[in-house]
Design a binder for these strands. Structure first.
Lengths: 97, 97
DNA sequence: ATCCTCCATCGTCTATCGGCGATGAACGAT
DNA sequence: ATCGTTCATCGCCGATAGACGATGGAGGAT
């Protein structure tokens, strides 16, 4: 869990996630074009996300496809929710939907 | 948001959070006793958590009180959920309560 | 064959993290 | 006044993260 959260704990990677989910086509190039970071840097961030299991990677030809793994992302969210829940463990009935 | 997640993205800090929420009394000493980390290290982690706004700090006398800020924690969880939601943007109606 | 584009990887640099021991301050107890 | 306890902070260090440029490979186009 800490690993997943670590992957998410960088503004650039959050931006990348949003970008990936915004457009159906998800080449590294496109992300680079929007993020104003060096291509190598973006590639690194993508690698981190892939290794964390949050993004799926599909090497077509030289055109790599990156896609958000919605299930994994939801899983992280659920884990965090569970942690919060376990931390509050009944002492905090308040729940902000 | 990345800041909050960064604070959470460390196993020791997650353990600390659980420990803090487990017992009503939350001295640094107690955490040290359970975590098998040096006192200075625990103090550092607590500082990180406090600076991230996830833990509230109350300097009583020489006995410092640390308490989980449930609302802040829930806020992070909500933010993450929102991110996931924005990433799936309607394509994932599944919702695990 | 020769470009050009896209991409991953490597090497480098700097900054930060994560751990520790040591130190000193604040306080209670003797 | 002198301990003992608790805690925050300060160096110090190895390791890692994050950024970049450069390199090279794989394809597509000419």
């Amino acid at each position: 869990m800490a690993l997943r959260l670590a992957a998410l704990s960088h503004p650039a990677r959050i931006e990348i996630l949003k970008r990936l989910s915004a457009s159906a086509c998800c080449s590294c190039r496109e992300v680079v074009d929007h993020l104003d970071l060096a291509q190598s840097t973006v590639s690194q961030h993508l690698k981190v996300l892939v290794e964390a299991g949050l993004v799926r990677f599909e090497a077509d030809r030289q055109r790599s496809r990156y896609a958000v793994d919605h299930a994994a992302l939801a899983g992280v969210s659920a884990s965090l929710t569970q942690l919060v829940d376990s931390c509050c463990s009944g002492s905090l009935p308040k729940r902000q939907d």
